[in-house]
């Protein structure tokens, strides 16, 4: 975004183009630049700092399609004051945007390989741009598998879209829930359980995982059991990002600034930190 040419601490003005509830506590907001013509390109895995007037600013990953950037798409969950206010926005309301920031998923490197995408909860949102990218370039990738774990069947994000991934784009998708009540016909159990039976060639695969830190720790162990190298595993981490540009220090994870060295890390680079208490 052109934002970077000026002062990266100054939000650009965007307006709400569309807002849609995904589940009981998640929603997707689509934004368009309100005045200027801005370059909205981003790389899968990057995030923006979204500012709601008078309420505050928070980092939210971009969940749109990197190959079609006529608007900015963010899916998030209502967890704090800013997301609460964001959900109350109407079409046409203004929102401040800084970004995009951060280190993206390795989509180029994944070409010619099997791709295993593992998401937990709201962690599917930052993974979706990878899926969109793959859909636009499907023949450049080998076997593509999505493993998605969430709390209950009611909490499944992008439920309609998921069906097309498999049907239209040869992206095998396995959804599992921690708890199922009622009519759920799918898997029950944690997402890590699915890794063992996922069809991919560990010697020629790239895995990308995004979800709560505990989930990722166990996901990585399962992937390792399958024989995939640490250097072929990528994880997206969460820390308290305030500035987005590595100046405020809040998001440090060991020596890494999650906002600019991450949020996506190659696992072997941060493996030593995954086992450190309160790092």
């Amino acid at each position: 975004m052109s934002n970077h040419n000026g002062n990266p601490m100054l939000p650009e003005s965007f307006s709400v183009k569309r807002i849609k509830n995904e589940t009981d506590d998640t929603f997707t907001v689509e934004l368009q630049p309100s005045k200027k013509v801005l370059d909205l390109s981003f790389e899968a895995g990057q995030f923006n700092m979204l500012y709601i007037f008078g309420v505050g600013e928070i980092p939210i990953s971009i969940s749109g399609d990197p190959c079609s950037t006529d608007s900015l798409v963010h899916t998030t969950r209502v967890v704090g004051t800013v997301t609460k206010a964001m959900r109350k926005l109407h079409v046409g309301d203004l929102i401040g945007v800084r970004g995009p920031f951060g280190n993206p998923w390795p989509v180029e490197e994944a070409k010619g390989k099997d791709v295993v995408l593992i998401a937990g909860g709201i962690g599917l949102a930052p993974i979706r741009p990878v899926i969109n990218y793959i859909i636009s370039n499907r023949n450049k990738f080998e076997n593509v598998v999505v493993l998605y774990g969430t709390r209950t069947p009611k909490d499944i994000l992008y439920a309609k879209e998921i069906k097309f991934w498999e049907k239209k784009h040869r992206i095998q998708t396995f959804v599992t829930v921690d708890r199922a009540i009622g009519e759920w016909e799918g898997n029950v159990g944690v997402v890590t359980k699915l890794v063992a039976r996922t069809p991919f060639d560990p010697k020629n695969a790239i895995a990308m995982a995004c979800g709560p830190e505990v989930m990722m720790r166990f996901t990585v162990r399962e992937l390792q059991k399958r024989g995939i190298a640490n250097s072929s595993i990528y994880v997206s981490t969460e820390r308290n990002m305030k500035c987005g540009i590595g100046h405020c220090g809040h998001c440090q994870f060991g020596a890494e600034f999650v906002c600019k060295d991450g949020p996506v890390f190659r696992y072997d680079k941060i493996a030593h930190l995954f086992d450190v208490w309160e790092v």
Binding site: M9, F53, E57, K242, C248, G249
Partner: peptide
Amino acid sequence: CTTMEDVTNLTGTEAERWRRWD
């Protein structure tokens, strides 16, 4: 290290962002 503070006036018509040592 710094933190960001977003504040408003009482009527909610004006907002400021402050950066402070953290």
